[in-house]
Design a protein around this nucleic acid. Structure first.
Length: 724
DNA sequence: CTGAGAATGATTTTT
DNA sequence: TCATTCTCAG
């Protein structure tokens, strides 16, 4: 256990030992960001500048929060209990639990995850007889979330046309429903905490007097409300220490506002430190990443460097097809393995999850073990959510979401009609479903009686015993035992009991504050931390994930695959405002994951949504310095002229014209010696690929995808296309 | 209530 | 293509 400052570089040391005041640390990829943040925290505590209770450190993920805490306790003997280290949502939850009355929430309020929220929105729409075609539940949910993250309640939403007004009404009705049912969605935790602090002066002053130092990780990922929350909590006295990297901002689509960094610069004068020395990648990789990101206009500016050598060149492979690309990757992986690279030190990155399929197929065929990130997390699994719904009803009967989820699961002969009648009665009485059913049992009588007895029987039991009891009495265990494919689900339910057993008083205190009710804390834990993606850890396996999921990780060898226009940058993203720059930052993140070896690949043909797409190499490949690239395949479209034109249209699925016999891809007939899938060069538009064709002889026309230049129909007789 | 078949879309993701 | 969601008949 030691706090060592000797190993820090001058910039890191400067950041760690800054005197009181505000600071913005621009921390490049692999520059030791987490280390600086935790060492800063330890240094403040050890120097006696502040007590553990006087600091608040906030991160985005539970994983990051755990890592900070564990690194801190390895440097310093501190009791984590009194410290406020956690995610934005976790800390807001803690504050709201401590002051639920002032915040207008019931003590046992439950947290809605994204799934629960959608179900809740659907109920609002149904109760208001809203046309779901005009107001799709997903859009309404997105609207509500977005407004909350801007800090706006329904009444604050600027009035617009009828549709906008209706959205605001639905938002209002949704909030009212949440209030009735004693639940809060993710954004609500933040907004409610923000409103609590802004309205309740004594409380605000209490926390302002308490927290002298606020430290923020991944500041570029904060949304507007999170930044306002920080400012409100900091007040005029506290010191804000923000660490971030605008070049790694890849979450604008979920509300992150990179502009917060520029705003911070303006609003909080103080220290500005750039951490540019990279301890991860070799020189060529960094040089490539620097050159790529230099194409972005909106940057604070930063250049990574390393004391390590140049290392290897970046290897680039052009495949005929996605399957071909996958086969090549397998070969390279086997070669790496022979050279002694551990499989878990190799990452296969892609833009979208759908791309993992081909890779998995090739890896499976080759017998290479792999692990795919993404998909359902533990607490999101249906059987686990069912079990939790019973526990939630025991803790908080007003939770209609939980009620509806399990009132007829396992089946108890309670049908849609019964529930409709119950919901109508509840609405008329302005009460929740549970109360309504209790007052007028009918068909749901046995169900509420079951919950009532569960609540009684659970008194005095430990958390794990409660969980086990609920599983047995609810019939969930029986149900899955009978089900043919229920074995895995049963296993997960067993895992849930284990999780409950492992959930300690310590966890509860950190999760929800001192003297928290273990059951409530556990339910909160389940909502705020969805758990691992899947089992299969520990085994040495290749790591397959999206470039987004790879953020923060590092590997000896990295494959960045599917570098094709339309796929990456994604065709949707280039239509979005600042979308291309965000895609480029994503590429930057992908490149900077690699320590020693970096592979880039793209395929001429890719099967997507059941149709063959003909693609051109991503512009991001062109944006890398040629001198750093080692082509493993002959560069076919070398002649392509660079262009500044960024038309929106990209490869469309090829609709094969029956006049050409609907021949398979690549061999399809097209007029005058051209065929679908063929690479061509046009004098003005550069390289392209034939995507469709029609007509014969002098009327013949072909549709060509020129990537950035868009997709164009050209008359063969006029266009003078060259075969490439 | 259940199961079969149709319809529907389909970046990226944490809390 | 394919996975999920919806609809309707039994």
């Amino acid at each position: 256990m030691s706090l060592r400052l000797e190993d820090l570089n001058p910039e890191q040391l400067a950041a760690v030992t800054l005197p009181a005041g505000h600071a913005l640390i621009l921390a490049g990829a692999g520059s030791g960001k987490t280390r600086v943040l935790t060492t800063r925290l330890a240094w403040l505590l050890q120097a006696g500048a502040v007590s553990p209770a006087g600091v608040l450190a906030v991160t985005f993920t539970n994983k990051a929060a755990r890592e900070m805490l564990s690194r801190l306790t390895s440097m310093l003997a501190v009791n984590p209990r009194g410290m406020w280290i956690g995610t934005f949502h976790g800390l807001c939850n803690r504050m709201l639990r401590a002051h639920h009355q002032e915040a207008g929430l019931p003590r046992e309020f439950q947290i809605l995850d994204t799934q629960d929220q959608l179900a809740a929105v659907k109920r609002v729409l149904r109760s208001m007889n809203v046309d779901e075609d005009r107001f799709p539940p997903r859009d309404v949910q997105y609207f509500i979330m977005g407004k909350k993250e801007e800090g706006l309640r329904a009444r604050d939403v600027p009035a617009g046309d009828d549709t906008a007004r209706r959205y605001a009404e639905l938002y209002d009705a949704y909030d009212e429903q949440c209030r009735r049912e004693g639940v809060a969605d993710f954004a609500e935790l933040l907004l409610r905490s923000f409103e609590l602090l802004s309205r309740n002066e004594p409380l605000r002053e209490h926390y302002r007097a308490r927290f002298r130092h606020l430290l923020v990780d991944e500041f570029q990922d904060t949304n507007r409300l999170q930044y306002r929350w920080l400012k409100l909590l900091a007040g005029p006295q506290a010191n804000l220490f923000a660490v971030g990297d605008d070049d790694q901002s890849i979450y604008a689509f979920r509300g992150a506002h990179v502009g917060n960094m520029a705003d911070f610069e303006r609003e909080y004068p103080g220290a500005r430190i750039r951490l540019e020395q990279n301890y991860r990648s070799q020189g060529n990789i960094l040089e490539a990443a620097n050159a790529l990101i230099a194409h972005n206009a909106k940057r604070l500016g930063k250049n990574l460097w390393t004391a390590a050598g140049a290392g290897e060149m970046l290897r680039v492979f052009e495949a005929q097809s996605d399957a071909d690309e996958a086969r090549w990757m397998v070969e390279e992986i086997q070669a790496l393995k022979r050279e002694g690279t551990r499989l878990d030190q190799i990452a296969l990155l892609y833009r979208s999850n759908a791309q993992s399929r081909v890779l998995e197929h090739a890896l499976f065929t080759a017998g290479l073990p792999y692990r795919v990130y993404g998909g359902l997390r533990f607490f999101e699994r249906a059987e686990v959510k069912h079990a939790l719904a019973y526990l939630r009803l025991v803790a908080s009967p007003a939770d209609d979401n939980a009620f509806l989820r399990v009132v007829n699961f396992p089946a108890r002969g309670i049908g849609a009609r019964t529930l409709e009648a119950l919901q109508d009665a509840a609405q008329a009485a302005g009460r929740n479903l549970y109360e309504t059913a209790l007052a007028n049992p009918g068909k749901v009588g046995p169900f509420v009686a079951l919950i009532e007895s569960l609540r009684e029987e659970c008194m005095g039991l430990t958390l794990a015993e409660k969980t086990e009891h609920v599983l047995a009495k609810s019939g969930l265990f029986e149900h899955y035992k009978r089900e043919r494919e229920g074995a895995e689900r049963l296993e997960n339910l067993g895992e849930l009991v284990n999780a409950a057993a492992a959930f300690s008083a310590e966890d509860a205190a950190i999760e929800s504050g001192e003297d928290a009710d273990p059951l409530l804390a556990f339910l909160t834990h389940a909502a705020l931390e969805a758990g691992e993606h899947q089992a299969g850890e520990g085994q040495e396996a290749l790591q397959l994930m999206t470039m987004h999921s790879a953020k923060g990780l590092e590997f000896n060898a990295v494959f960045v695959s599917g570098l094709e226009e339309g796929l990456f940058p994604h065709e949707q993203s280039v239509l979005e405002k600042d979308g291309l720059e965000e895609e480029r930052r994503l590429m930057y993140v992908a490149l900077t994951r690699a320590r020693k070896r970096l592979y880039l690949s793209f395929a001429q043909t890719r099967l997507l949504h059941g149709q063959t797409r003909y693609n051109l190499a991503s512009r991001f490949v062109d944006e890398l310095p040629k001198a750093l690239l080692k082509w493993l395949t002959p560069r076919l479209a070398e002649k392509r002229k660079p262009s500044t034109f960024t038309a929106g249209a990209f490869t469309r699925a090829v609709k094969r014209d029956p006049r050409f016999g609907g021949a398979p891809a690549g061999t399809g007939g097209a007029p005058n010696g051209f065929r679908i899938g063929q690479n061509v060069v046009h004098a003005k538009f550069g390289a392209g690929v034939i995507v469709d064709a029609e007509g014969q002889g002098s009327d013949a026309r072909v549709q060509v995808n020129f990537g950035r230049e868009g997709v164009k129909w050209l008359a063969v007789a006029v266009a003078k296309l060259q075969g490439a």
